[in-house]
Write a protein that binds this DNA or RNA. Structure first.
Lengths: 127, 127
DNA sequence: CTTGACCTTCACACCGATGTGAGGGTTCGA
DNA sequence: TCGAACCCTCACATCGGTGTGAAGGTCAAG
């Protein structure tokens, strides 16, 4: 498919699809006329990228972790250097911390909303 | 405490502590000489802010959700307007999606690392 | 053949988070 | 009293992700 369709199907401006390509996150084919040609699978890929970007990861990191996510338990990866593995382990850690932080605060917001809505005028409270 | 100590204890450049103040995320007292004076509790606060920033939330949003997180089940909140509650609910949703996305990808990385390290030369695999 | 919708590259601009430095005041210890 | 270490404000710079527009090529339908 061409960039317009991918754009519609992912809700991503063409500008960004080109940007992700420039950052090495996706590498579409080229038709003879120079148009980019995107594989069907890139629909999911792009949404994954956007999710990670939205979660605060920079393209530089996303580029590193994407290849490990292609197909579950298929090692489609040349030879991962030790430093590469270290980077991954480190990033794994950061993601876990991010998740914990988000989850804590999300739960707090949920609790707040619950009490404010009077769902459970909390038993554990007193002025 | 003054900005230098808070900076050390939170690992946050003074520049950013002033920036967070400018964005309305924290509001330190002022000494007679004009120096900022930070309450002890702001140590946690600042770390919370940094965690949320790192997780991709903009200061504008953080400012809105922070007041709901002060003390569990203490409604220290004037009167939350309906639109405010809507904003919170919406943000709650976004955070959940973020968490899911991060968790999915984190688990995939973990799985990749596990197989690459030979922890469990995966049974579910074949060339 | 022309028009309009699509694509190309290039470049400049914005916004939010952050770095950095200038110019100057306060406080404390040598 | 002086210097070092801290603080202040102000302002400009950088960086990543994104918006936007110019100038032009491709292609299908009228």
């Amino acid at each position: 498919m061409r960039i317009g369709e991918l754009s519609k199907r992912t809700g991503t401006p063409p500008r960004l699809l080109r940007y992700y390509e420039e950052q090495g996150l996706i590498t579409p084919e080229r038709c003879t006329n120079g148009y980019r040609s995107y594989d069907e699978r890139l629909v999911d890929r792009v949404q994954q990228i956007r999710g990670l970007l939205d979660a605060g990861l920079p393209t530089r990191i996303i580029k590193q972790i994407l290849p490990c996510l292609d197909k579950p338990s298929t090692i489609h990866f040349p030879d991962p250097t030790p430093e590469m593995l270290a980077t991954l382990a480190c990033e794994l850690d950061r993601m876990t911390r991010r998740i914990d932080c988000l989850a804590r605060n999300r739960d707090a917001i949920a609790a707040y909303l619950a009490t404010v809505r009077g769902d459970i005028p909390p038993a554990t409270e007193q002025a």
